[in-house]
């Protein structure tokens, strides 16, 4: 797992987001085992207490579950991937709309621009819809 922490926002939040993104993209599937807290802390050189907090919250959010003696796994819940995907999309959309709004674009214009840009970007990438690395 690669984590590029920007350190402007809480690190535990970024760890959670990184897992969510990986789940939304299908890089992590329901039932997959994720690294132990110690492994992750050592891998990304982050305070073990911070990692612990991230894992605790992911469990509370129902994203992961810990099986005693076996490790931590992505929850075996069909609805999980959809809901995480939906949440990530929501977040991207909110920041997109806020930014465009600040630039003075109205709703219709935005939609039109999105359509246009979508076509152009897809053509350039040859069908790939995302370009970011992640988990």
């Amino acid at each position: 797992m690669q984590l590029r922490l920007d350190q402007h926002s809480p690190i535990y939040q970024q760890i959670i987001d990184e897992f969510k993104r990986a789940i939304a993209r299908g890089e992590l599937k329901p039932g997959d085992r994720i690294p132990s807290q110690r492994e992750l802390a050592s891998m990304v050189q982050v305070n073990p207490n911070t990692v612990q907090r991230a894992y605790r919250e992911m469990e509370q959010l129902g994203i992961t579950e810990t099986l005693r003696g076996q490790g931590t796994f992505v929850t075996q819940d069909a609805g999980l991937v959809d809901s995480v995907r939906r949440e990530m999309a929501e977040r991207a959309l909110v920041s997109f709309v806020q930014e465009m709004n600040a630039l003075g674009y109205g709703c219709e214009e935005m939609v039109e621009l999105v359509r246009e840009t979508y076509r152009r970007v897809l053509a350039a990438q040859g069908g790939e819809s995302d370009g970011d690395g992640g988990v």
Binding site: D6, Q7, H8, S9, P10, I11, Y12, N47, T50, R53
Partner: peptide
């Protein structure tokens, strides 16, 4: 707390 400082001030510890 480092995390709280980041959250409250929106800045890294370095900043």
């Amino acid at each position: 707390e480092a995390e709280r400082l980041r959250e409250e001030r929106g800045k890294s510890i370095q900043e």
